[in-house]
């Protein structure tokens, strides 16, 4: 690879949401607590966790939907909060693109695919011949370049629409794609093909991908590195082979054990699964006191005792 500098680094990122209900006191929700992650260029980092673990908040903070409460986001070594010149901000927003979970609401139903992509092309690749560029991008995401441009979003399947969303990211020459559960609303039978598309974009075009998912099996399929989040904290991170293959943190082990395995029959006796799940959840919610390195690059969190929580 070009360098050892991460394309994106999160440095002790925290985000607290304050909920102000119409009646009653405002409550604070600590969505992110000291999240530090590194995403290396040309690689995929999977961010795994249950709903409410804060993984989507990480993605939205990176693309600027939320401003962090504290901590820094470094893009190629530069703090994005210090990008004050408009040109620098534009450069960042162009380089980092998001693909959302819901392929049905991410496209404007009133416009054709050609409109969606040409707009992005004319803004970001004005020098290129638009029709040629359009064709190339559609070929890149394995859509038919002849029939697709004139179609409206409702004429495409969920998988095809998700491909259009990736095409749009390519049209603005994104270098980092934040993909927030891009396959979870798609049919099982086409999920793998979207994962395959991401893999190809990463391997052939050198795109970096932050892959946000609750599905540890797809993380193993796509990503070189994996980080596991629980209640706003990173509890384990490192090379996917180790994090998913030989998990060390209790929560990762629990997550790993709960993934449906067709060869393992469940019976009426749960062998203590529910009580284990309760204990692990409670322990893993405590603030992270320190990170312990298991093998080079493979890190797990050590939690403070209940008394300090």
């Amino acid at each position: 690879m070009l360098s050892d500098t991460p394309i994106l680094s999160l440095d002790a990122l925290s985000k607290t949401f304050t909920l102000r209900p119409v009646f009653g006191r405002a409550t604070e929700v600590k969505a992110l607590r000291n999240v530090s992650l590194d995403l290396m260029p040309g690689r995929a980092l999977a961010l795994v966790g249950e709903s409410g673990s804060g993984k989507s908040t990480v993605g939205r903070t990176i693309v600027g939907h939320h401003t962090p409460t504290s901590g820094r986001i470094l893009f190629e070594g530069r703090d994005i909060a210090e990008l004050t010149a408009r040109a620098d901000q534009m450069r960042y927003r162009q380089a980092v693109q998001m693909v959302f979970q819901d392929p049905f609401s991410a496209l404007n139903p009133a416009h054709t695919i050609r409109h969606h992509l040409l707009r992005a092309l004319s803004l970001h690749q004005p020098e290129a011949d638009p029709e040629t560029a359009l064709r190339m991008i559609l070929e890149d995401v394995e859509l038919d370049p002849v029939s697709t441009p004139s179609k409206f979003p409702h004429e495409l399947s969920g998988g095809q629409r998700q491909r259009v969303n990736f095409a749009r990211a390519l049209a603005v020459k994104a270098r980092l794609i934040v993909a927030d559960e891009p396959t979870s609303m798609l049919d099982v039978s086409i999920r793998k093909s979207i994962l395959g598309l991401m893999q190809r974009l990463k391997d052939d075009r050198g795109l970096s991908i932050l892959y946000i998912t609750h599905d540890i099996a797809t993380a193993e399929y796509l990503a070189e590195d994996t980080a596991v989040m629980f209640r706003g904290q990173v509890v384990e991170k490192g090379p996917t082979a180790q994090v998913v293959g030989t998990p060390q943190h209790d929560y990762t082990k629990l997550l790993r054990a709960a993934v449906p395995d067709p060869t393992l029959r469940l019976t009426g006796s749960d062998a203590g699964f529910a009580s284990l799940a309760r204990r692990v959840r409670e322990e893993s919610a405590h603030p992270v006191r320190a990170l312990r390195e298991i093998t080079p690059g493979h890190v797990i969190a050590e939690h403070a005792e209940a008394a300090h929580a």
Partner: peptide
Amino acid sequence: LWDAMPLL
């Protein structure tokens, strides 16, 4: 269907 599912 089986082939389409990434399994651990």
